[in-house]
Simulated assay, not measured.
Amino acid sequence: MPKTITKNIRISLLLIATMGVMSGITVVSSLPLISQTFHHIPNIEFLSKLMLTIPSIIIALFAPFAGIIVDRFGRLKPLYTGIILFVAGGSSGFYLHDFYAILAGRAILGIAVALLMTSSTALIGDYFDEKGRHKFMSVQGMAVAIGGILFITSGGFLAELHWSYPFAMYILPLFFLPLVVSSLYEPEKHHPLEHEIKIESNLWPVYLTAYFAMVLFYMMPTQLPYLIIETLHGEPSTIGFVIAVAMFFNALTSRQYARLKARFSYRQIYIITFIFFGTGLFIISQAGSIAQLFYSTVFIGTGFGLILVNTNSWFLAKVPAHKRGKASGVLASSFFLGQFSSPLLFEPIVKYYGIQGLFLIVSGIAVTIALGLFLKGKLSGR
């Protein structure tokens, strides 16, 4: 580490990380209300889900280019640009009242998050050694979960006042921009070493894992609101509360990641993740009331608390230093292509089997993945 990692640097990186979770779940509680408000638009229930997934496809498409920009022009300029675009695009739903104009704002938000994720991930790789990354990412996972709790619950209460009010929360990053600008520094440029060229080709398993994990995990914010509102007859704030409880367990689990990583391999942590997630999905598939959904939150939260931290840690352990920007862009693309694909891939299942049928099927897929990873580990002797 070329410089001391100060408390303000850590806080700045944690605040930036919370912007990633803010980009999606803040408006989750508004989705059914947006469907009702724009009911005259054909297929609005499906189109309203694009409020979450349009940013994802834009990130998936733009993030590799953002990564090249980060490697070529440094980490900080793209980061600051991302924050400004995040505020402008994210808050557009607060003052725009045309559905398609709001979708355009969500696309701008996607460009912003692509810049933020690639630059901040590269900075973490630049600032910390491997042991330091595990410790920091444990704290980061907890911070993201706590941020998620605040954003999802605030978004739920604001949505009950008006569907557009949650979009105003995207203005918040303006308040911590001065801290970020005054704290972060531009790392020295890295030059490739001979052994790093081989390592880069081994990143594709990380990218594929990121994609398929998010296909499964992003069904929660895109499908659960409709189960709560339309099947279980809950309120918009109920959506936020259920997800917030899951995020609480997310925070507890993420904070323990460094200790878990000291005892288990990346593969073993994935096995634990998918077992917990599959159990939580099964409970949701059998729920007949809002109260029963809360039994699933400990399992869903634990699984989600491990998946992102484990994947990011695995990635940073493998990526060569001089390619952190470009590779971080591809990783972000993998995550968000999975998010975008999730409702598209699952929509036919929802039509034929209903939302709870979908949760039952995917719970089986999650457990099958865990079993496959376990057997592969046994066969390979690891």
Score class of each variant (00 low, 15 high):
residue 176 F to S: 09
residue 285 S to V: 05
residue 17 A to N: 15
residue 288 G to K: 03
residue 54 I to C: 07
residue 190 H to N: 14
residue 224 L to V: 08
residue 92 S to Q: 05
residue 347 E to L: 11
residue 65 F to H: 04
residue 128 F to Q: 08
residue 171 I to C: 06
residue 124 I to F: 02
residue 59 I to S: 04
residue 300 I to N: 06
residue 335 F to N: 03
residue 378 K to D: 06
residue 253 T to A: 03
residue 183 S to V: 08
residue 338 G to C: 10
residue 80 Y to K: 00
residue 133 R to C: 03
residue 16 I to C: 12
residue 356 Q to N: 10
residue 179 L to Y: 08
residue 151 F to I: 14
residue 159 A to F: 03
residue 246 A to I: 04
residue 214 M to Y: 10
residue 217 F to V: 14
residue 368 T to Q: 07
residue 155 G to V: 15
residue 251 A to R: 15
residue 131 K to W: 02
residue 164 S to V: 00
residue 318 K to D: 11
residue 163 W to G: 00
residue 229 I to K: 01
residue 87 V to W: 01
residue 321 A to G: 12
residue 143 A to I: 09
residue 339 Q to W: 01
residue 107 A to S: 13
residue 137 M to R: 01
residue 196 E to R: 03
residue 256 Q to I: 10
residue 74 G to L: 08
residue 319 V to E: 09
residue 97 H to Y: 07
residue 283 I to D: 10
residue 182 S to T: 11
residue 95 Y to A: 12
residue 377 G to D: 13
residue 209 T to W: 01
residue 42 P to A: 05
residue 36 Q to Y: 05
residue 216 L to N: 07
residue 297 T to H: 02
residue 134 H to S: 09
residue 279 T to I: 15
residue 333 S to V: 00
residue 325 G to A: 15
residue 81 T to D: 10
residue 364 G to T: 15
residue 188 E to K: 14
residue 273 T to D: 09
residue 255 R to C: 05
residue 188 E to V: 13
residue 165 Y to V: 02
residue 295 Y to L: 14
residue 119 S to E: 02
residue 341 S to H: 11
residue 261 K to S: 08
residue 371 L to P: 00
residue 228 I to W: 00
residue 217 F to C: 14
residue 302 T to I: 03
residue 212 F to P: 06
residue 5 I to M: 11
residue 305 G to Q: 07
residue 357 G to K: 01
residue 280 G to N: 13
residue 214 M to E: 05
residue 242 V to T: 02
residue 252 L to I: 14
residue 352 Y to M: 14
residue 107 A to C: 13
residue 346 F to D: 12
residue 94 F to L: 05
residue 57 I to Q: 02
residue 207 Y to T: 08
residue 213 A to K: 00
residue 340 F to V: 04
residue 44 I to G: 00
residue 74 G to I: 08
residue 146 I to F: 12
residue 167 F to C: 02
residue 380 S to H: 12
residue 147 G to A: 15
residue 376 K to T: 11
residue 254 S to K: 01
residue 282 F to T: 15
residue 80 Y to C: 01
residue 337 L to D: 01
residue 215 V to Q: 07
residue 317 A to V: 14
residue 276 F to G: 05
residue 190 H to F: 13
residue 207 Y to F: 14
residue 230 E to S: 12
residue 5 I to D: 04
residue 9 I to L: 15
residue 115 L to W: 01
residue 282 F to P: 13
residue 343 P to C: 13
residue 177 L to H: 06
residue 181 V to T: 01
residue 306 L to A: 06
residue 316 L to Q: 12
residue 225 P to R: 01
residue 68 I to P: 04
residue 256 Q to M: 10
residue 35 S to C: 07
residue 371 L to I: 07
residue 126 D to L: 13
residue 92 S to F: 02
residue 132 G to N: 06
residue 123 L to W: 06
residue 354 G to V: 10
residue 221 P to R: 07
residue 134 H to W: 01
residue 363 S to E: 08
residue 233 H to W: 09
residue 252 L to H: 06
residue 95 Y to R: 04
residue 155 G to N: 13
residue 378 K to I: 12
residue 289 S to M: 03
residue 236 P to L: 11
residue 67 G to N: 00
residue 240 G to A: 03
residue 277 F to K: 00
residue 374 F to K: 14
residue 27 V to T: 04
residue 178 P to W: 05
residue 356 Q to Y: 04
residue 197 I to W: 06
residue 72 R to N: 14
residue 376 K to A: 12
residue 371 L to Q: 04
residue 190 H to V: 15
